[in-house]
C-alpha cells in the first residue's frame, strides 16, 4: 500500500471523500490493492474509539480560571492610565457643526431646568430617585436578555443600586433559580447577599438550595448562608444531601456549613 492509498483511507475515516475518491477507493479494494479485511478492521476500530471516556474535570479547575481572570482584569484596570492629552485631541477631532449646535441647545435647556429647579433639594432627590428607578428597569430588562455576558452585567448593575424594590429582587431570584449560566447564578447570589437583611431575599436564597444542580452554585450558596447566619438553611442542606448525589468536596462543604449554622 502506498502513501496515496493511505491518505485515501484517512480521508474515508474522516468522511471527506469526494465521489471520485470513493470510486477510486472501491476500485482499489476490488482489485485487492487495499486489503478489504484490513480496511474494515481499521474502520471498525476507528468507530470503536468513541467509547473511550474522559472523566469530568474537578470544579476547582473552573474556580482557578475565574480567579486568574479576575486578577488579570484587576491588573488591566490598574495599568490603564488616562492620557489627558490624547483625550482632548480625540474630543477636538470628533467635534462637528451639528454636534456643537446640539451641545448648545442642551446647555440652554440645562440652564432653564437649573434656574427652574434652583436649589430645591426635594426635586433633586426626585430626579435622583428616577435615575435609580431607570437603572433598576434597565437591569431587569438586561436580566431577561439572551446573552450571558449581558445578564452578568445586569447582575453587576444591581450591586451598584443604593436600594432596590420587590420587582428587582424577584428578577434576581428568578435568575438565581433559572439562569442557564453557572457564572450568572453565582454572581446573582453575591448580588442578593447585599439585600440579605430583607426577608424575601433570605427566604428566596434558602428555597433556592434544593433547586440548584451545580455544585459550584451550591458551594456559593453555602458561603452566603454562613455569611448571613441563616440557620433555617441547615434543613434545606440536609434535604439536598438526602435527595442528591454530590461530589466529595461539596458534601464536606455542606457538612461544615450545617455544623456552623447549627
Amino acid at each position: 500500500m502506498n502513501d496515496k492509498h493511505e491518505q485515501l483511507i484517512a480521508d474515508y475515516l474522516q468522511g471527506t471523500l469526494t465521489d471520485k475518491q470513493t470510486n477510486e477507493l472501491e476500485s482499489l479494494i476490488e482489485s485487492g490493492a487495499i486489503d478489504f479485511i484490513d480496511f474494515k478492521a481499521i474502520e471498525h476500530l476507528h468507530d470503536e474509539l468513541e467509547v473511550l471516556p474522559v472523566p469530568a474535570p474537578s470544579p476547582e479547575m473552573r474556580n482557578r480560571f475565574y480567579e486568574m481572570l479576575a486578577d488579570e482584569q484587576e491588573k488591566q484596570k490598574q495599568t490603564s492610565g488616562f492620557d489627558f492629552k490624547e483625550f482632548i485631541q480625540k474630543m477636538l477631532h470628533q467635534i462637528t457643526g451639528p454636534k456643537l449646535a446640539y451641545a448648545f441647545v442642551l446647555l440652554i435647556i440645562g440652564g432653564f431646568i437649573g434656574s427652574t429647579i434652583g436649589n430645591n433639594n426635594d426635586q433633586l432627590e426626585q430626579l435622583s430617585g428616577e435615575l435609580e428607578s431607570m437603572r433598576q428597569m434597565m437591569m431587569i430588562s438586561m436580566l431577561e436578555g439572551p446573552s450571558a455576558s449581558d445578564r452578568l452585567r445586569a447582575v453587576n448593575i444591581s450591586s451598584q443600586l443604593a436600594e432596590t424594590d420587590d420587582r428587582a429582587i424577584r428578577a434576581l431570584l428568578f435568575t438565581l433559580n433559572n439562569d442557564p449560566s453557572e457564572n450568572v447564578r453565582i454572581q446573582t447570589i453575591e448580588a442578593l447577599a447585599r439585600w440579605g437583611n430583607q426577608d424575601v431575599v433570605r427566604e428566596g436564597l434558602i428555597k433556592s438550595i434544593t433547586r440548584q444542580e451545580s455544585d459550584l452554585v451550591i458551594v456559593a450558596l453555602a458561603d452566603v448562608m454562613v455569611e448571613l447566619g441563616l440557620q433555617q438553611a441547615a434543613g434545606e442542606f440536609e434535604k439536598l444531601k438526602n435527595e442528591r448525589e454530590l461530589t466529595g468536596s461539596t458534601q464536606t462543604k455542606i457538612d461544615n456549613t450545617i455544623a456552623v449554622l447549627l
Binding site: 502513501d3 493511505e6 484517512a10 475515516l13 484490513d38 478492521a41 481499521i42 476500530l45
Partner: peptide
C-alpha cells in the same frame, strides 16, 4: 498529506496493538 499518512499508520498500529 503527512497528517493523513500519520492517521492511517496510527490506526494500523492501533489495530496491531489491540
Amino acid at each position: 498529506s503527512a497528517v493523513k499518512v500519520r492517521m492511517f499508520r496510527a490506526m494500523k498500529e492501533l489495530k496491531q496493538t489491540v
